[in-house]
């Protein structure tokens, strides 16, 4: 029995006690997976687990609070669950976490950049060695690392940090994450960095997919972006206003963001939002030696108070 079949069997076993289990199925084309809400055994038969399963399904959990829900997660996704539990946004007793060792997922955007257009994809064969995409009868193969999501290249959590049903052999490999992407961006002059964001933000359509895809962005229906009372943001679509939102978004996620990259993946116009979140996380790591969603019993640093922080010289003037 393959790992996937074992996983399906485990889900079917637990399903009677759950309202639903969230996983993935094949979407509208061979390259796109889509979230699957399993309520029956027939639904479970449609479950897939492969490098196309890009979505972080933990995003659905706060919205399903109060129901008994199973969720299939990759290692990185499990960090969101830990963070949600720490913040009491979900109840541990109400969720069942299913997982398998993850070897990485693709970046649909990177594939698009390679093949030009995603409009005509006929078939995809993806494993963690190569990704073969067929368009118009002709195939192109890419080495997995070249088209994998950037987060996968620095992955330290192939194995879920929290799971109730784990299928397969845990993989404890850890890549380095030296935040070199952030460091090299920081090295650019300030005007250049601002100009970069202004150029990127110009095409933002204010759809707030970044916000709604984020598992930790839980104000959703009461977001400052649309609130009139308090009236902190205008409804103008100036680049400055759009950027203002992203800064608020990033600040609220400092030390909470698990870098799942859903904000960036969900953006319909491809704004590299994860860079901004990583900048804040880099600061948090330096100040508090903390990585969100990795330790179930810890408290996120910005939700705790210490009279003397170890790495902040508060009265050093």
């Amino acid at each position: 029995m393959s790992n996937l079949d074992t996983l399906k069997a485990k889900i079917k076993e637990r399903l009677p006690d759950l309202d639903m289990v969230v996983g993935w199925e094949q979407g509208f084309d061979p390259l796109r997976a889509t979230p699957l809400f399993m309520r029956t055994e027939e639904d479970v038969d449609r479950l897939i687990w492969n490098p196309l399963c890009v979505h972080n399904l933990a995003t659905y959990l706060p919205g399903l609070k109060g129901r008994k829900v199973g969720v299939v997660v990759k290692g990185c996704d499990s960090r969101s669950i830990i963070e949600l539990l720490q913040e009491k946004l979900i109840n541990r007793d109400d969720i069942v976490v299913f997982s398998m060792p993850c070897e990485g997922v693709v970046s649909v955007r990177k594939i698009q950049n390679r093949i030009g257009s995603l409009d005509y994809v006929e078939s995809v064969e993806a494993d963690t060695g190569t990704v073969k995409v067929t368009v118009d009868g002709s195939s192109q193969s890419f080495g997995f690392p070249d088209v994998a999501a950037s987060k996968c290249g620095r992955c330290q959590y192939h194995t879920a940090l929290l799971s109730d049903e784990f299928v397969g052999e845990p993989n404890n490999e850890k890549a380095e994450d030296d935040y070199s992407d952030v460091t090299s961006f920081e090295a650019r002059p300030q005007e250049e960095r601002l100009a970069f964001w202004m150029t990127e933000m110009q095409r933002c359509i204010q759809c707030y997919a970044c916000r709604n895809a984020c598992p930790l962005c839980v104000c959703r229906d009461h977001c400052v972006a649309q609130s009139r009372d308090p009236h902190w943001m205008t409804q103008e679509n100036s680049t400055q206003n759009k950027w203002f939102f992203q800064v608020i978004h990033a600040m609220h996620l400092a030390g909470r963001c698990t870098e799942c990259g859903e904000c960036e993946r969900a953006c319909p116009v491809g704004i590299p939002l994860l860079l901004l979140k990583r900048k804040l996380n880099k600061e948090i790591e330096e100040l508090f030696d903390y990585k969100a969603g990795t330790l179930i019993d810890s408290t996120p640093p910005l939700q705790a108070f210490k009279v003397e922080e170890d790495n902040i010289n508060e009265r050093g003037w």
């Binding site: 979230p35 699957l36 959703r220």
Partner: peptide
């Protein structure tokens, strides 16, 4: 609508 995330894309 189960999988819809209620964004405006």
């Amino acid at each position: 609508s189960a999988k819809c995330i209620s964004c405006g894309a």
